[in-house]
């Protein structure tokens, strides 16, 4: 039986060798771009200084991790990453749903498309340019806030790029500005898919708009909300590097509130050339990230099998 199976699959392989051929460039790319780096992650357990390439170096066990977790850095970057991304998930979901519902209510098709287009526009702007825009507002000497708004309110000017305490708010505003359109597009697609009969029946029963939203719209777009939330919780350890690197202009004094795992890894690697430290932080990120995806998916699967991703 086993022999037979083997032979048929060999015959099948022959017919499909052309299809395998099609896959070669893509798979080769994934091996180089994804799988070799995955194996290379073991350098987190090595002293890289003595080697010149990926698979060299002496094994040092958990020494790099000891260094990383001995400093207060590990705590600060973990806290910042989790708090920011947690806040972003909540803001983007709630506002995304709200504006999707509002867009869906605009009766004139032209206007709803126009509004959607405009609020989606910031999504297309690269973070480098976003940093320029933010600087026009926050520049210490002649930025719009220091030169016009704060004097108007009778307040002292603020050294924005030197005061960490304002940055959680600034980054939340910038992130919301940039991604609210994206969220509303996703949820709007789900809302449009809802059968209008539900609403017609609800109206006949005298349901108010608010009741319809709560009892029909939200429950019916729940699968989309769940999937998007799993995906973002799974990525909660990964930050939008550009937001945290470009927008604060890589300013040192701001690091207590703007440094996240991604910027830390980048700085340790590129600026400080500390492969050990940065690879330890990177591995920490990858492993916790993987555990988080599996865990959230597991929870969802337990509650409702159909809504889990895998």
């Amino acid at each position: 039986m086993k022999q037979h199976n083997f032979r048929t699959s060999l015959r099948r392989l022959k017919r499909y060798q052309m299809l395998f051929l099609l896959m070669v460039p893509g798979m080769a790319y994934l091996i180089i771009n994804n799988y070799i780096p995955m194996i290379g992650i073991l350098i987190a357990f090595k002293d890289y200084g003595s080697a010149t390439w990926l698979f060299g170096g002496d094994w040092v066990g958990f020494k790099n991790f000891e260094f990383l977790f001995k400093t207060s850095d590990a705590w600060v970057i973990t806290r910042n990453t989790l708090l920011y991304n947690g806040a972003f998930i909540v803001l983007n979901t709630v506002l995304g749903i709200a504006f999707a519902i509002f867009l869906n209510e605009v009766r004139h098709r032209f206007f709803s498309r126009f509004y959607q287009g405009v609020i989606l526009m910031p999504f297309l702007i690269s973070m480098v340019i976003v940093a320029y825009i933010v600087m026009a507002f926050l520049n210490v000497e002649n930025g719009y806030l220091n030169k016009h708004i704060l004097p108007m309110l009778g307040m002292e000017t603020i050294n924005w790029y030197g005061e960490p305490k304002y940055w959680p708010y600034i980054l939340m505003i910038v992130n919301t500005w940039k991604s609210i359109g994206y969220g509303s597009v996703l949820f709007l697609a789900a809302i449009i898919g809802i059968d209008s009969e539900y609403y017609e029946a609800a109206v006949l029963d005298g349901a108010t708009k608010w009741q319809q939203i709560r009892k029909i719209t939200i429950p019916l777009i729940m699968p989309t909300i769940t999937i998007l939330t799993i995906l973002s919780v799974g990525r909660i350890f990964y930050s939008d590097f550009g937001l945290f690197y470009q927008v604060p202009l890589n300013s040192g004094p701001l690091q207590p509130t703007t440094d996240v795992i991604d910027t830390y890894v980048y700085r340790s690697l590129i600026t400080l050339g500390d492969v050990g430290m940065s690879s330890a932080a990177g591995l920490y990120q990858s492993v916790v990230g993987l555990v988080l995806v599996l865990f959230t998916n597991y929870i969802v699967r337990k509650k409702d099998k159909d809504q889990a991703i895998f």
């Binding site: 180089i32 070799i36 390439w53 990926l54 799974g234 990120q285």
Partner: peptide, 30 residues
């Protein structure tokens, strides 16, 4: 044939990655 295996290999790249350091080393050294 082997469709699920290859699909998984593609899908797995979305769940786990080697991170900046090793990717950087692969591209600069290899």
């Amino acid at each position: 044939p082997l469709r699920n295996l290859f699909s998984f290999l593609v899908f797995f790249t979305m769940l786990f990655n080697g991170g900046l350091v090793t990717t950087y080393l692969v591209y600069t050294n290899l």
